[in-house]
Design a protein around this nucleic acid. Structure first.
Lengths: 213, 213
DNA sequence: CACTTTCTGGACTTGCAGGTCCATTTTTTG
DNA sequence: CAAAAAATGGACCTGCAAGTCCAGAAAGTG
């Protein structure tokens, strides 16, 4: 079934995925045809189907995987080591920068929406991306809690989920309006909420009764 | 240019928009063809182009406007009167409920991504929706500040922007993974942050400029 | 150096969705 | 009620993009 690839074959396959990713970043997934990809990557129709027997859908899925990898790697090394206040601020800047550069193109967004709502493959890719992203934020929060830079009673999982949601929303607003401010605000306020109390002293905090719910 | 519509014509046009909206909610924008809409609304090809001379793009734009209206009206009356703690909690529930019911279909999301990234018309629709949404949150925050339920030094605009970003992100994660928890967490933590300090404030508090829009 | 497998080129087929056209019916208007 | 304007039905056209096919070149394998 799975034909083994030679070195040359692997290179071609790679070239196709990367070229398709570029094309999609520039023109959007719906606007991208197999012929566009063919032209840009200097390949023939048969090569496309040779490496992606499932046709366009399989190719798009491969591109989605490729782009998902980029999303996380573009945030490194900060995201992987959120162990100091400075690291958090650097990470924040890296995220803002990445999306400023990317502008209004959301490769992943358009991809998954093109792959129809709930293609199992597409869901798996986003699920994995979001899961890994959130896990790294969570462990950053835990690290800061151990250093007493974040209150230990805070629920790291929920805080990470909220922060990730803010980022996602900021990005999605960037896509649809072109404005970067929501992403910035979501990150700034989200991080500020975490790091605001550097209290090394677990002194008697006269916290008022927490609200219902 | 603009042919005046008779009562019958307006009704037909309306029927087309609503039928198209339903179809798109069920099957997604990319999967919806003019023939699907034709069949569902019992119209002919010429009617579609009679009422939407710009073809599919114009029709999709009209549907987008229609759906954008629904997004806000589904949050009323809570969103329009965030003037008590209870109103905020009710609003929160209304939002969660709306998207729980909607499930993994995001009419607007798929619509704007189908209308290509940055069609001016599509941008205008989302821009207006987000603007109005955020403005209503902002004035809710201001109202609570006047009642001393939210600290007056808090920047209402930024807080509203962050909250809206959280909601958007929660929805977008719901679309791609089917999980509602991020939306819930974003709302819960976002509101909690605002309402946490019910400080009754000292008497001679000089009223902070209450510029109610 | 045979010979097998993988890789490549590109012409061809196919289906379908968007869009056009015009004839006919219904409604409005004076 | 007659002329004009709007609404409707549905056949038809057209282009394009996905997918197929097969023949031939290149690369590995013994």
């Amino acid at each position: 079934m799975a034909p083994r690839l030679t070195a040359k074959g692997a290179a071609t396959r790679q070239r196709i995925v990367e070229g398709a990713a570029e094309q999609i970043r520039e023109r959007g997934a719906t606007e991208t045809t197999l012929d566009d990809i063919r032209a840009r990557t200097a390949t023939s129709k048969s090569q496309l189907f040779h490496y992606f027997p499932g046709g366009k859908e399989e190719l798009l899925l491969a591109v989605a995987r490729h782009e998902a990898g980029r999303v996380l790697s573009d945030q490194q090394p900060h995201l992987g080591a959120l162990t100091s206040r400075q690291a958090w601020y650097d990470w924040r800047d890296a995220v803002v920068d990445r999306y400023r550069r990317q502008g209004q193109q959301c490769p992943l967004g358009t991809l998954v929406s093109q792959l129809s709502p709930a293609t199992p493959g597409a869901q798996a890719v986003t699920r994995e991306l979001l899961g890994s992203w959130q896990a790294q934020i969570t462990s950053g929060i835990r690290a800061m809690q151990e250093k007493r830079e974040i209150p230990p009673e805070l629920d790291a999982d929920r805080a990470a989920a909220a922060l990730l949601a803010g980022i996602q929303g900021g990005v999605s607003i960037l896509m649809s309006t072109g404005s970067l401010t929501h992403l910035e605000v979501a990150l700034d306020l989200g991080i500020e909420r975490l790091l605001v109390a550097p209290a090394p002293a677990p002194a008697p905090a006269p916290a008022p009764a927490p609200p219902p719910r």
